[in-house]
């Protein structure tokens, strides 16, 4: 009986990792993470470069064996069932690896054949996916002259060729202009509506807020926080942020006058950030104390504030 319940739960877990480790030589790129992705959700891996996001994605995509820990994808072990798992997922790699020796249409057809689909199936699928990616008028063009946004759309379309239950998107919109980005987000939302589970890595916080139901923040190979975007903001930041801009060099001198107005503050090269639940009240209090910034801004906390708090502001290259 208990087994049935367990299987049932497994059925809904698209990915389940326990103490998952990936080492390259002596270095642990992923240093023991627990992660669960449920059917139908959009799940995000956030983190700076080198945090271990892509290594985790490659393990889930069954193209990189884990060094330690447990991993189940679609209820199977990537180590022994790699091809069976890959048959049911779609992968959008960080860098487009479209086949430059083939046309747009052929890219979709040939890729479908790799999954063992019949010639008739891939012919129909290519037409459907070109419409989805708004590339029908470029069907018989080579891939190379396409714009960055078009290539990205084609890569996403290609990842759909096997009607995957789960899509792995590694920085899907990095390097795209806002129009292309919004178009892609629209497409991903459409797929989510169709019930396709999505795992997304990004360091674009706006993208994470747009796309992810739930996310983890990774840093140095470990998960440092987990939750929905709004939960994370609630937990790791305040409702609002008061930004006080001073003449260069003045902000350090002003800090003692305002530091106690907020639970947390940060000194940046050109301004002071006060993390306060009521930005307006904090600003009034600062004014009352005779603090006269050059300019002020009250804004809502974003995921970016959470991200910077958790992963720091220093560069990690």
């Amino acid at each position: 009986m208990a087994r049935d319940g367990e299987d049932d739960e497994r059925e809904h877990l698209m990915v389940s990792g326990k103490a998952l480790v990936k080492r390259f030589g002596g270095v642990a790129a992923v240093a023991g993470i627990d992660v669960e992705v449920r059917r139908g959700e959009s799940f995000g891996f956030l983190g700076p470069n080198g945090a271990g996001k892509s290594s985790t994605m490659r393990m889930i995509a069954c193209v990189s064996p884990r060094s330690d820990g447990e991993l189940r994808v679609l209820g199977m072990d990537p180590e022994t069932d790699g091809p069976r798992i890959r048959a049911r997922i779609g992968v959008v790699p960080q860098l487009d690896n479209l086949d430059v020796e083939l046309t747009v249409r052929q890219n979709l057809q040939v890729y479908g054949r790799y999954f063992g689909l019949s010639r008739a199936q891939v012919r129909a699928k290519a037409v459907e996916l070109m419409a989805f990616a708004e590339l029908s008028d470029r069907a018989d063009d080579q891939v190379e002259p396409l714009s960055g946004g078009m290539k990205r759309r084609l890569t996403i379309a290609r990842s759909m060729v096997n009607d995957p239950e789960m899509l792995l998107l590694d920085e899907p919109t990095t390097g795209l202009d806002p129009q292309a980005r919004h178009l892609l987000w629209g497409r991903l939302y459409q797929l989510k509506q169709q019930g396709v589970t999505q795992i997304i890595t990004t360091h674009d916080m706006h993208e994470a807020e747009q796309l992810c139901d739930r996310l983890v923040v990774m840093d140095g190979g470990q998960i440092v926080a987990e939750g929905s975007p709004s939960e994370l903001i609630r937990r790791f930041s305040t409702r609002e942020v008061l930004e006080l801009r001073f003449a260069p060099g003045e902000q350090d001198g002003q800090l003692p006058h305002v530091a106690d107005l907020a639970g947390r503050h940060e000194v940046l090269p050109d301004r002071l950030l006060l993390y306060a639940d009521d930005g307006e009240a904090a600003l009034e209090a600062a004014h009352a104390r005779g603090v006269r910034p050059v300019s002020t801004l009250i804004r809502r906390s974003t995921l970016e504030d959470v991200f910077l708090r958790l992963t720091g502001r220093s560069l990690v290259d």
């Binding site: 995509a61 069976r84 790699p93 790799y114 063992g116």
Partner: peptide, 8 residues
């Protein structure tokens, strides 16, 4: 790389 993302 693209091929290895499929069952191949």
């Amino acid at each position: 790389d693209a091929m290895l993302a499929t069952p191949l």
